[in-house]
Computed example of a mutant assay.
Amino acid sequence: MSYIKHKLTSFWSLIKKAYFSWNRNDPWARSATIAYYALFSLPSLLIIVVTVAGYFFGQSAVQGRITEQINNFIGEEPARAIEGMIASAALNDRSTFAVIFGLAFLIFGATGVFFQLKAAMNNIWNVTAKKNTVKRIIINRIISLGMVFVLGLLMLVSLVISAVLAALSDYLASIAPVITTFMLDLLNFLLSFLIVTSLFAAIFKWLPDVKLRWKTTYLGAMLTTCMFLVAEYIIGFYFGQSKPGSVYGGASSVVLILLWVYYTCLIVFFGAEFTVQYALHKKEKVEPNEYAEPAIYQELERLEQKRGQLIDEKRILDTLQSHTDKDLEMEKSDKKK
C-alpha cells in the first residue's frame, strides 16, 4: 500500500512540475503558430499519407477512414472540407515538370508542421541547433518527412487490423454476439490507444535534437494519449454544444480545424514537458545530439552581444550629451558678452 502511495505521490509531483514548466514555455503562442502552419500543411500531408497507405489498401478506403476519424474528432463539416482538400490537391497525370514541381511542393508543405513542431520540442528540452547549415535544414526536412511516412504506416496498420477484426466478427457473432460486440469495442479502443501512443512516442523520440531512449518516451506518450482521448470527447462535446464555427459562417470548417490542432498541440506540449520531468526524475542521461547544444550557450552569446550593443549606445548617448553641454555653455558665454 505504501509503495502504491509513493508511486502516486511521485506521479502527482511530476504532473505539477510538468504543468509549471509547460506554462512557463508559453504553449499558447506556439500552439497557435503550429495550428497556422498545419492549416497549409494539411492537404499535402494527407495526400502523402493516403498515397502511402492507399498503395496497399486502396486510396478510397484510406480516405474514408481518415474522414471517419476526423468526423469523430471535430464533426462532419470539417471532415468533408478535408476530404475536399485531398481530392482537389491530388497530383494528376500532367507534364513531367508539373508532377516534379507538385511533388516537391507536396513534400515541402507536408513537412512544414513537423518542422515547426521540432523547433517547439527543442525549446522544451532547452537545446538549439549549433548552426543552421543547408545540410542540417535538409536533414530536418527528411526527419519531418519520415514522421509523415510514420503516419501513413500507422494508418496502414490500423486498416489491416480493422480488416482482420471485421473478418473475425462474423464468425464470433454466431457463437456469442454480445461478447463479440464488447470484445470488438475493447479491441478497437486498444488499437486506437496503441497507434496514438506510438505516434506520440515517435514525436518525442525523433523530433527533438536530443539522445533519448524509447523507454523514457513511452510513459509520456501514454499520458499524452490518455489526455488526447479524454480531450477528444470534451472537444467533440464542446464543438457540438457551443458550435464555435457557426460564428464564422463559410469559414467555420477552417476555424474548427485550427481549434482542433491548437488544442491538440497544447496536449502534446504537456506530454513532452512530462517526458522531460520524468527523465530528470529517473536521472536519465539525456544530451544533445551532434547537431545541437544546450540553449544556454547561445543565450549567453546573445546576452554578450546585447551587452556590447548597450555599451555602444551608451557611448553614443554620452557623446551627444557632451555636445549638448558644450552648446549650452557656448550659449551662456554668448549671452554674458
Rank of each mutant, 00 (worst) to 15 (best):
L172P: 09
T180W: 10
T51P: 01
T319R: 11
S10T: 15
L219C: 10
Y55N: 09
S242F: 12
T111G: 01
H281P: 01
L187F: 13
A104T: 13
L317T: 02
M1D: 12
A38R: 01
L328I: 14
A292F: 06
Q116T: 11
A202F: 05
S2K: 14
L310T: 11
C226L: 14
A104H: 07
R141A: 00
T225S: 13
T67C: 06
K17W: 04
I161K: 00
I48Y: 07
P288K: 07
F20R: 09
V255C: 04
I47N: 09
T181V: 14
A221D: 04
S253H: 08
R141H: 00
Y263F: 15
S13N: 15
K118M: 09
G245M: 04
Y262P: 05
G220M: 05
F228H: 03
I107S: 00
Y238N: 02
L151Y: 11
D170W: 11
I66E: 00
S174G: 15
W22F: 08
S41R: 06
A166H: 09
E273Y: 02
G271H: 00
R30T: 13
V255P: 08
F115V: 03
W28I: 14
V148H: 12
V113R: 03
K314G: 09
G54F: 02
F114D: 07
F97G: 13
S2A: 15
Y55L: 11
L45W: 06
T216S: 12
H6A: 14
I195A: 03
A251P: 08
L187I: 04
L207Y: 00
A129M: 08
W206K: 07
I48E: 04
I175D: 09
M330T: 15
S31C: 07
V127G: 04
A163C: 03
V160W: 11
K243M: 11
L186H: 01
